[in-house]
Simulated assay, not measured.
Amino acid sequence: MSLPFLDADENLHLNLGIIVILLQCLSKSSRGSLKLNNDRLHAYHFLIKNPVKLNQVMPLLGKNGYILSHQDSFSVASISANVDPLFDREALKSLLTILISQKIVDVEYRKNEGFFYKLTNLGETKAGLLNGDFFSEMRIACEQLKGTLSISQSDINKALNQIMRRDAF
């Protein structure tokens, strides 16, 4: 008998939902410019699935820390997060390919900056259907991440590298 536990690293539908919520909340700045390219989306996807890491990164970026739930504070992931997704670009590419093929996500290419992603009208509708405790927590984490949209990707990467090196020892 298996427990009713979903592993967010492995569950396709859960990861599709997380990407949709990230795009719903963070794809555009308050002025309407597109913000989520491959690198930023990849970093945010990792951080939103690892609230303890998000809580460690935010102060390094000069932002308020994320308020952790009791469950997040004392989980196995809080002791040792799975960093493999940080190095798995193909997984994100596969998720985006599915969402684009279903016309949930739209892509815009900018020379010298790469691909940027946003939800289509259908995607916005689908995002509105994602509810429940898990997705509510994802939206709260996204609100915290909004403050990092103005921070350069290299600074976000430096902060991620810093917490990963600190945890390695």
Rank of each mutant, 00 (worst) to 15 (best):
V83F: 14
D72L: 07
L54Y: 15
G65K: 08
F74N: 04
P51T: 04
N38V: 12
L68V: 01
H70Y: 14
P85Q: 07
L61M: 04
G62P: 07
V52C: 03
P85C: 13
N82V: 10
P59Q: 01
L68N: 04
S78K: 10
I48P: 03
L47C: 08
V57W: 11
L68K: 00
Y66R: 04
D39M: 12
G62D: 03
L54I: 15
Y66A: 01
N82R: 02
P51W: 02
H45Q: 03
D84S: 06
D72T: 08
H45M: 06
S69F: 03
V52H: 05
I67H: 12
D72K: 11
N82F: 11
V83L: 00
S69G: 03
S78C: 05
Y44F: 13
N50A: 08
S75D: 06
H45T: 12
S75T: 00
D39Q: 15
G65I: 01
A77R: 11
H70N: 14
L54R: 15
V52F: 05
P59L: 06
S80Y: 09
K53V: 01
Q71H: 08
L54Q: 04
L47R: 05
N38E: 10
F74I: 05
V52P: 04
L68R: 11
A77N: 15
Y66W: 09
G65S: 14
L41H: 13
I48A: 00
V76Y: 07
K53L: 10
K53H: 13
P85E: 07
Q71W: 02
N38R: 15
L36D: 08
P85V: 05
I79E: 08
D39C: 15
L68A: 11
A43T: 15
A77K: 00
L41Y: 15
D84M: 00
A43K: 05
V57K: 12
I79H: 06
K53Q: 04
K63D: 14
N50P: 00
G65N: 02
Y66D: 03
A81H: 03
S73P: 00
